[in-house]
């Protein structure tokens, strides 16, 4: 009791938080200044270190041609489509494995065997099988969402405490009913954690596959084109944008999770 109070008191003590935040700004601003100075040093440097002015012009440029908007739309669409397909398959297989022993014994080892290959290592294979276009990218993104969700579903369903399962026995519910009414709701918060991971992985796989498969639209493709043209300004914009979009998606899905599972007593 006293312990928790004293923790809170240190929070209110932080009346110097404005100082802290000023400190936090110091390094980014400093880096920015160094960057800017470097970009003005020589023509060679201007190529590696795009000045803030250049970055602004680059942003205006890709915005006005509509390239950026198209790229964002293509990448987001790919990520969510992959999450939807791969996630659904992953959930189904995970649930089947958790429910039927035979499926567990048969699918489990195969799943763990195939999962060992890093996704990006599969790129050359898919490129030979499906070409360098959208189908290959989609398969990679689907797989990236599929793997974590199989595991999350399987684990979460297994974790449901047996006392909840016993309620199903006592009420003489059928197997399907026990699953829908008891197991699934109890496991859902953890499965959702798996979904939020799958989303993060899907976003990574989207950008990665767009960088590695040359054909088609998407933020990764714009980046590779910019790299070929040595356009550091556009690369910086896109890299920051990818980080920002990833952060926003993660933030949003966590908020959704908090709202959906507000009945759950955390800690």
């Amino acid at each position: 009791m006293a312990y928790s109070v004293s923790i809170m008191s240190t929070h209110t003590l932080s009346k110097y938080s404005f100082l802290n935040s000023a400190r936090g700004w110091l390094i980014p601003v400093g880096l920015l200044l160094v960057w800017e100075v470097m970009s003005r040093q020589s023509a060679e440097n201007a190529y590696a270190f795009a000045s803030i002015e250049q970055i602004y012009h680059g942003l205006v440029e890709i915005l006005s041609t509509g390239e950026l908007q198209q790229g964002i739309a293509a990448s987001l669409q790919r990520a969510f489509l992959g999450l939807l397909i791969g996630g659904f398959l992953g959930f189904s297989i995970g649930a089947v494995m958790a429910q039927w022993r035979v499926a567990d014994v048969l699918i489990g080892p195969l799943y763990h065997m195939l999962r060992q290959v890093p996704l990006m290592g599969l790129v050359p294979l898919f490129s030979l099988w499906l070409g360098n276009g959208d189908p290959s990218k989609l398969v990679v993104v689907c797989l990236s969402a599929f793997y974590p969700l199989v595991l999350a579903t399987y684990e979460s369903l297994h974790q449901v405490e047996s006392k909840y399962k016993e309620v199903g026995d006592v009420l003489k519910l059928s197997r399907t009913k026990t699953f829908i009414k008891i197991l699934l709701p109890a496991a859902l918060p953890n499965i959702f954690t798996g979904i939020s991971f799958a989303l993060a992985f899907a976003w990574l796989a989207t950008i990665g596959s767009e960088i590695l498969f040359s054909a088609g639209a998407g933020l990764g493709n714009i980046m590779m084109n910019a790299q070929a043209a040595s356009r550091m300004d556009i690369l910086i914009i896109l890299t920051a944008l990818i980080g920002l979009l990833g952060f926003l998606m993660n933030y949003l899905i966590n908020k959704v999770g908090q709202y959906l599972f507000r009945w759950r007593n955390l800690r």
Binding site: A2, V5, S6, M8, S9, T12, L13
Partner: peptide, 11 residues
């Protein structure tokens, strides 16, 4: 006493 969100809490 502790400061608890601005209020003084006498323990």
């Amino acid at each position: 006493s502790y400061q608890l969100s601005g209020e003084r809490l006498q323990v």
